[in-house]
């Protein structure tokens, strides 16, 4: 079972804010020693990107249900409440990883 997680960070254009947030996501993964491939996409590409992802992160509030876990990481852009979101993200990553390794 692969321990590498695929994380997609989405924003309006898939360029500006998602790239900014992706750096912080990579830091969180490093800090808790999880190997992850972090990619970025636009909101419009999100549905197709989500098929191959383990976790979806959005820089905004996405209002449509997806088949994969979704977490909003707006604070990685605004800089307010970063630690709280980092913690939530870390816990979510651990949870996904343990579910994966038990073969669910």
């Amino acid at each position: 079972m692969s321990r590498e997680l695929k994380i997609v960070v989405a924003c309006g254009s898939g360029v500006a804010t998602s790239t900014l947030a992706a750096r912080t996501v990579e830091e969180v993964c490093e800090a808790i020693d999880i190997t992850a491939r972090v990619s970025t996409c636009s909101m419009r590409e999100l549905v197709s990107y989500s098929e191959n992802a383990d976790l979806i992160l959005t820089t905004n509030k996405y209002d449509k249900p997806l088949s994969k876990p979704v977490l909003s990481v707006t604070s990685f852009i605004t800089g307010i409440g970063v630690e709280k979101t980092k913690k939530a993200l870390g816990e979510l990553l651990q949870k996904i990883l343990s579910e994966k390794s038990t073969g669910k």
Partner: peptide, 27 residues
């Protein structure tokens, strides 16, 4: 960003100006 927020304090009564992209999640 972090430098300025730190200097102002996290509890300062401010609005953080962000990119319009943060609004594009809306389907």
């Amino acid at each position: 960003r972090d430098y300025m927020i730190k200097k102002l304090g996290e509890d300062a009564d401010i609005n953080i100006g962000v990119d319009i992209a943060l609004g594009v999640g809306n389907q």
